[in-house]
Design a protein around this nucleic acid. Sequence first.
DNA 1: CTTGACACGAGACTACAGTCTCATTATGAT
DNA 2: ATCATAATGAGACTGTAGTCTCGTGTCAAG
Lengths: 208, 208
Amino acid sequence: MATRITARRDNQRHRTRKDLLAAAARLLKQGRTPDMDEVAAEAMVSRATAYRYFPSIDAVLVEAPLDGVIPDPRQVFPADDASTDPADRIDRAEAALHEACYRHEAQLRLMLAASLERTAKGSRRDAIPVRQNRRTPLIEEALAPARRRLSKPAYSRLCAALAMIFGTESMIVFQDVLGMDQRTARTVKRWAVRALVAAAMKDSERQE
Amino acid sequence: MATRITARRDNQRHRTRKDLLAAAARLLKQGRTPDMDEVAAEAMVSRATAYRYFPSIDAVLVEAPLDGVIPDPRQVFPADDASTDPADRIDRAEAALHEACYRHEAQLRLMLAASLERTAKGSRRDAIPVRQNRRTPLIEEALAPARRRLSKPAYSRLCAALAMIFGTESMIVFQDVLGMDQRTARTVKRWAVRALVAAAMKDSERQE
DNA sequence: CTTGACACGAGACTACAGTCTCATTATGAT
DNA sequence: ATCATAATGAGACTGTAGTCTCGTGTCAAG
């Protein structure tokens, strides 16, 4: 009799969920601002089903995969890369992410806005997931050659500080708050990340 | 006869507009997420009138005054304040803004989300104004005693870099991306702003 | 094959954002 | 005080986000 806590068709469900996220990513990549109907249609499921998997369109957009949008660490630092200077590597990583952020500005703005609805529009729906974090792997890969030269607290402090500078949010500050163009923003960030890396290295020297 | 391009009742209009913004600010301060009906009711005007002054509820929320929410420079640095060390002053300003941001997190998240709809939801309505900028006056006041010791490019570069760290956006990074608590965030920012100020000072020394 | 649980589709329903029209009120010039 | 008109109020109307219900198809255990 009854399948107890029977196999809950996990395969089917995972596939449906993945299809929805992939559909959202496709639509975002072509510059659209999809509503739930479009995502559902693109994923070839009904709207009701889409809402069974995600409480709101925002939740879908926040979780939509960013493959091909945000640079992969292995792409910025290939296996045969011999660079060791952490400042240069951090600067290179920042340059790549900077370029990607401005190139996909519309999509990233949309995803950031969607993630902010947490407290905002619907305190009723509690489910919007935490942001994706593609910047930390990038930062850690850039800092890898220097990691042993930094104390643990200095290292995590530096990573966190760089995370403020690396993502979409700094683009928002430069554009919407400061009214600054992309090139100037890049020079400011270049200077800042180098200053922070240098300061962290110096702190750890002192400690030895 | 006709009052030509007669007085356009500017008083009345300014008063109505101000009432709407003040009403929005009151509702935001009590933690609500007001819709246009609520703002209009609180301002004691009809919904239609509210929409005559602002193209969307988002536009109202972005422009809602932040008096008493974001610390005023004159309050952080009173006239009789004799401090001159730029790092200490910047740190003090950051501490004040940090506290304010976390205290009014809900409102600031809402205002940020509203301002992001620029490209997002409605490409149809083009009217959402640019963000308010309360951080730059604070940063400039903190840096005032050291301004003459910095070259013009170094100064504006430092201001821009600090602006990345000072506002709501860094709180979003620490909370939503890094999952970091308020105290740890504060220590990271304290370290970062001091490192940046020191680096800027050192750059300018070198130049002399 | 049968059967029960589960995923799904279709569509009605509520709530809010934003637009529009028309009647009413209030302002300021005369 | 009077009058033309700008500002407003009332409310209908559209479109979309999200909820809910019910009927259908399908998977898997017996």
